[in-house]
């Protein structure tokens, strides 16, 4: 995969990100929408995006912290103990 292709891909990605949020905002503005939102946050446009981003960061950071301080051990851990 060439460098230029990567760049294109990233542009496409940014477009997708933008579109997905935009569509939802539009949806929320449309009068027909409020049909089934089970929870409050489903009514916030872009919630999924925020949750996805934050969730991803959290998962990585939290588990890495856990692993670093506690759970991760050298590979011959069980042979030694």
């Amino acid at each position: 995969m060439g460098k230029i292709e990567m760049k294109h891909l990233f542009w496409m990605l940014y477009a997708c990100l933008f579109v997905s949020v935009l569509v939802e905002v539009l949806l929320h503005l449309s009068p027909h929408f409020h049909a089934h939102a089970a929870f409050v946050w489903q009514e916030i446009p872009g919630f999924g995006a925020v949750y996805g981003f934050i969730g991803c960061i959290l998962i990585i950071v939290v588990s890495k912290a856990l692993g670093h301080h506690w759970l991760q051990k050298e590979e011959d851990y069980y042979e030694k103990h």
């Binding site: 990100l17 949806l27 999924g48 949750y51 996805g52 969730g55 991803c56 960061i57 990585i60 950071v61």
Partner: peptide, 20 residues
């Protein structure tokens, strides 16, 4: 709603991934 919600979630996950 489902489609959009899911897409957002996963796409932004990618952003997070790319950063970290």
């Amino acid at each position: 709603g489902h489609v959009i919600g899911m897409s957002q979630l996963l796409l932004f996950t990618f952003v997070g991934f790319w950063l970290l």
